[in-house]
Computed example of a mutant assay.
Amino acid sequence: MKKKTTIIDIARDLGISKTTISFVLNGKAREKGISQNQEIKILTYIEKIGYKPNVFAQSLRTGKTKTIGMMVEDISDPFFSSIARSMEEIAYKRGYKILYSSTENDTQKAKDLIQLYRNRQVDGYIIAPPPGIEHDIKVLLEDKFAVVVFDRTLPGIEVDNVLVNNYQSSYQATKHLIENGYLNIAMVTLDSDQSQMMDRQLGYEKALDECDRPGRVMKIIYRDNDVDNIKEIQEFLNSNTEIDAVFFATNYIADNGLEAIRNLKLGIPQNIGVVVFDDDRLFRLFSPSITAIVQPIKEIAEQVIKLMLILLSNPASKKPVRSILLPTVLKVRESTLRNQEKETRHTLK
């Protein structure tokens, strides 16, 4: 059996001290004043021979596993999967691996995952938190773990966070519908106390209040049963025939809503306008294409990892909580343009 390569072997082969090799493997080359040329030389050789460091031994020596636990609502959701992919790429370049899981908005599952990650001795936690885990996050912070939340916050928890401006985004989307002649705009949202959902509803209501327009909010329970969601949205639209536009608060609610609209044989945008919070590739391909609020995926990922690395660099120090609020972009497509506007647009082209 071939003997496993060690740091001592690499140091001997390259004529470099094992301490220098160790610093490079632990991502401390810059910190320890190791030149870029020497770092590249070491990393190139390690890649060439296929050396894999003993993570367990490394964690015993440094107290770090170089892993980050990430918890999101649903990792299969296009928004969260795109965020996770971007974060994984950025973190990997800094020597960290990310383990991710879905909470399914289930408080107990989120608690169990936090405990699982603690058992795995992850160095930090990136969380899109469901309600009910305030105490668990407080305990992580008290135990000096690096924690960053994103997409939503939890009341009373002082923790580094990265958010988009949900209130302003929803306000702008609703104003866009009003300016395009829609009179009775409904909102279909999640039955949840999550901060981002509440802010989206408040932005929608503010835009309607300014124009003295009636509003109608339908709330559905988070679940995987699309059939029930579609049925509920159909019944809501059937019972409120005056509705001429709908603002869907998430992309997965919109998926069900668009199917409900199709089942009712309502024309978009002739019979009903549609705006969705959070874009998806399918909304661009849908016929007619769907107007959507586009979240800055790459920037969210970059800011979350930036905060996480700052915390990991010195987790025991007391730092002020950092809150980063990012803007979104309203991508106007065919689903909110009445026939007249569509014809004018095509003529101008």
Rank of each mutant, 00 (worst) to 15 (best):
T5E: 02
I8D: 01
D9C: 09
D9S: 09
D9N: 10
I16M: 06
T20N: 07
I21T: 00
L25N: 00
N26C: 09
A29K: 03
E31T: 12
N37V: 04
Q38N: 15
I40A: 15
E47R: 15
K48H: 08
I49G: 02
Y51S: 10
Y51C: 13
N54W: 03
A57W: 01
Q58V: 03
L60K: 06
R61E: 05
K66L: 15
T67D: 02
G69P: 03
M70T: 08
D77W: 08
F79P: 01
S82D: 08
M87V: 02
E88D: 11
E89G: 12
G95A: 13
G95I: 14
Y96N: 05
I98L: 10
T103P: 03
N105W: 06
A110Q: 09
L116Q: 09
Y117I: 06
Y117G: 05
D123H: 13
Y125T: 02
P131Q: 05
G132V: 08
I133D: 01
H135F: 11
D136A: 15
D136C: 11
D143C: 13
V148T: 04
V149R: 01
D151V: 11
N161R: 14
V162I: 15
V162R: 02
V164S: 05
Q168G: 06
S170Q: 09
S170E: 04
S170G: 07
S170W: 02
T174W: 03
K175P: 00
K175Q: 09
H176Y: 14
L177V: 02
I178L: 14
E179Q: 13
N180Y: 12
Y182E: 03
L183H: 15
A186H: 06
S192P: 00
Q194C: 08
S195Q: 10
M197G: 07
L202S: 09
A207N: 02
C211Y: 07
D212H: 11
D212M: 10
G215F: 14
M218E: 13
M218C: 11
I220R: 07
N229Y: 04
N229W: 02
K231I: 08
I233R: 05
L237M: 05
D244K: 11
A245L: 03
A245R: 01
V246D: 00
A249C: 13
Y252G: 04
N271S: 14
I272A: 04
I272Y: 00
I272H: 03
V274T: 05
V275G: 05
D280W: 10
F283W: 08
A292F: 10
V294Y: 01
Q295M: 10
I297A: 14
K298Q: 11
E302I: 02
K306E: 02
M308A: 07
L309R: 09
N314K: 14
A316L: 11
S317C: 10
S317Q: 14
K318T: 09
K319F: 12
P320Q: 07
P327H: 13
R333Y: 07
R333F: 07
E334L: 15
T336W: 05
N339D: 14
Q340L: 15
K342H: 05
E343G: 04
T344S: 09
T347S: 08
